[in-house]
Amino acid sequence: MSASSRPRQRTLADRGIDGVTLLVLPAALFVVLLFVYPFVYGLLLSFAPKEGGWLGNYAKFFSDPYMYGTIWLTLRLALPVTLLNIALSVPVAMQVRHMRRQRLLTTILVLPITLGTVLVAEGLLNYLGPQGWLNRLLILFGLIDRPIRLVHNYWGVFISLVITGFPFTFLLTLSMISGIDPALEQAAATLGARARQRFFNIVLPLIVPGLAVTFCLAFVDAFSVFPSAVMLGAPAGETRVISFAAAQAAFEQYDYSYASAIAMIMAVVQFGFVGLVLTARGLFYNGPAGGGKG
């Protein structure tokens, strides 16, 4: 055995593979087996519909406005919410980065992320409801005459996506902005750039690539909105999101093939947007935001 395995071992070692490297295998196998394989399996399954040809599921989806309409209904929620969250995150992060008790704020903001969408939805049902504190306050201040409807419609889901999504985009943006060497802005200031000019010439170009990634993560997350769309929205109507349609196919019609097809369509839309954004990101400076050396 030694004659044949010796040289082979040497080549492996030459390529940097040794016992320690093999420690990565269990985790990698796990992900392949339980993430990659199901995905591929689901993809293949989606081409084996209960009835019709191999594209039967997709034909069914795209010929039924009640089904393909979910893409639009979900986009209508996910895109504006994501853009709003990023638009809010940047100015807030610009102010908060110099704050001394930053940790208190970030801890409060991490709460909605930790609690998750189900709890936020339940909380908002009470809080935004016709008898909730928000409507009461607005009436008290005379801003409205009668309670405005904020639950079981588009806005309920929208607000819940801001509550869980803003902290996420904010914390990412804050870590990016804090990563910019303060000397860069100081240098710009000594060269005569005012606060606005420093933001648009220095800070913004340096965080655009990071913002693109943030957008992708936040958008993909919002696009797969599920429990809050059901609990806070109108799952039969204006917030019939695509993930709800997929779950219905799986758990109400027990058509796993169709459900997989919907999940694949969902993935394609998500990857499509991500691909678009990341391609655009390639046009910007992508290096480190340090002060130059190292």
Partner: peptide, 18 residues
């Protein structure tokens, strides 16, 4: 990174099927 970036509901349905 993929399982962290792809939302759970997207890969959850095929995973549940398996």
């Amino acid at each position: 990174l993929l399982p962290l970036l792809v939302p759970p509901i997207t890969f959850g349905i095929p995973l549940a099927t398996v």
